[in-house]
Design a protein around this nucleic acid. Structure first.
Length: 227
DNA sequence: CTCCTGTACT
DNA sequence: AGTACCGGAG
């Protein structure tokens, strides 16, 4: 395994930022809307989530208090285009209950918890796993938490930085152990990795020659391991 | 490991 | 038609 340094991670960051420009994440009008988008986008393309969000906005359901008033059937209908709509309705309901019990639907009231405790509490909510919890912490609450995902794993694995079956915490530590604890940096870094993962470091037929991360002196491990 | 689900892309 | 999608639960 190659030695990974702070400078090499920052070099990757700069390469992506220079090529792609800033990402302006998370696209939403409130912290609650961010959290809803985070939950809806689990294993789902963002375009489908946008349709669901648009439905919710049309019906003025993008606040915890308003969303809590509708039935499961109505919520299912609105978020249907984002897929997994029965599960996600349960997940949204569980998150609403969490907000209600935590702070009476005042999303900003979550500020009273330090990040590690708030993360533990989020992870106890059914439907909220590590990536969803961290995305809410970073993109809804501005906490300096580095979000990793399948794209991050794929990109890092193909550059020989981690094994293919790297776990969430281990992959996250790769970045948090070496980068300054900066929410603005973490926000943009994850956004850039997702964009690279979608458009260049694709699962099949990766476009390595045109990739923003091409020619960084990293080992293209994928080329000899799989296809 | 399988299931969950709709949509868009190849 | 097959595949992939800003995962998580059982």
């Amino acid at each position: 395994m190659p030695r990974i340094t702070t400078e090499s991670l920052l070099q990757m960051y700069r390469a992506m930022l220079e090529t792609l420009g800033p990402s302006r994440w998370w696209p939403a009008q409130s912290p609650f809307e961010v959290a809803v988008g985070v939950i809806l986008t689990q294993n789902t393309t963002w375009g489908n989530v946008e349709k669901a969000i648009a439905n919710l906005r049309e019906h003025d359901l993008l606040t915890p208090g308003r969303m809590a008033t509708v039935t499961d059937e109505e919520l299912e209908r609105h978020i249907q285009p984002s897929g997994f709509y029965r599960q996600k309705t349960r997940n949204l309901r569980a998150f609403l209950n969490f907000l209600d019990e935590a702070d009476g639907f005042d999303f900003i009231g979550l500020e009273r918890w330090e990040t590690p405790e708030l993360r533990d509490r989020l992870l106890k909510v059914k439907g909220i796993g590590p990536e969803t919890a961290d995305s809410i912490l970073l993109y809804a609450l501005g906490r300096p938490v580095f979000v990793v995902d399948a794209y991050t794993a794929r990109i890092c694995h193909r550059h020989g930085l981690v094994p293919e079956d790297v776990g969430y915490d281990e992959l996250q530590a790769l970045f948090t152990d070496r980068l300054p604890e900066d929410a603005v940096l973490f926000n943009e870094y994850h956004a850039l990795l997702v964009r690279v993962g979608k458009d260049w470091c694709r699962k099949k037929k990766p476009l390595c020659a045109a990739c923003p991360l091409n020619g960084m002196g990293l080992e293209p491990a994928w080329s000899v391991l799989d296809r």
